[in-house]
Nucleic acid binder design. Structure first.
Lengths: 137, 137
DNA sequence: TGTCGGATGTTATAAGGTAACGTTTCTTGT
DNA sequence: ACAAGAAACGTTACCTTATAACATCCGACA
């Protein structure tokens, strides 16, 4: 029976380990970095990481940063409840990533797509630059 | 050479070959696909392709699609001003890529960055979905 | 003419990602 | 409870993408 269609899905052991690794990091991690972090917990090969990542991304608990080939735990509140466009601001100095949810941006992307008759499924928005903290430093 | 209609840029032989390969394609090409296409023209190894691509991307004649690990020749009208944000609409059906320049989008991204004190250097916007032609078909 | 820097050629290897297959472990219907 | 199917797991092997490092070639130019 479908007992939990809305609340946080239970993660499997591997998914939880990967998610914890990402949550504990203060920046994006590559799949192979995660693998190395989890070797002492029994991980031995890439598919174990990628399978967990695939699921976590699917659920919405983890985001993939296309321009970095890396992954971050979702820190946006209520991220698993709706699929809106999320932009990422990636600091090229400190490596940290800020997650930005912006309705005007979502609308704008929707309009751009609509104008060209494009059926939009997923948007990737990644901003590269220097974060406020690094600029101040 | 005579084929190069861009001002202020004279491409080397390898750069021209890579650019021509991309211009002749009707979709994005991976670096290794380009390598294969250019083997008969003397290309033998990845660095030859990547070096040319690096320069072409730098100049702005070629765009890198982060979510595909692939490259497209710039087809945006007035591409000689490469400072604006360009969005790509990638059709998951036919594989073609539309290049979209949109001031409202640029503004919006600038505002988002400014609001968080982020010094924006480069924006990556890639939309995945189904293009108009494929929807109609 | 020598030399200096950019472009090139080449080998080797790092880094990212997946196919395929067998086994284990959960579900679920009866 | 138990068989059967589904989902997750472990493992090997392999593919794709990208770069490091080093040698060479070639044109600009003092």
């Amino acid at each position: 029976m479908a007992e939990d269609a809305q609340m946080g899905t239970d993660l499997t052991k591997n998914q939880q380990l990967v998610f914890d690794a990402l949550s504990g990091a203060d920046g994006p991690l590559s799949a192979y970095t995660i693998l190395d972090l989890l070797r002492e917990r029994g991980f031995r090969a890439p598919p174990q990481v990628y399978r967990a990542l695939d699921k976590l991304v699917d659920i919405g608990l983890v985001h993939r940063l296309e321009s970095l080939n890396a992954f971050v735990a979702c820190r946006h509140p209520g991220c698993d409840t709706h699929e809106e466009t999320i932009a990422f601001a990636i600091c090229e100095d400190c490596g940290k990533v800020a997650e930005i949810s912006d309705d005007a941006l979502s609308d704008e992307l929707g309009q751009i797509a609509g104008r060209s008759g494009f059926l939009l499924k997923k948007s990737t928005v990644e901003l590269r630059g220097i974060c406020g903290a690094c600029r101040a430093a």
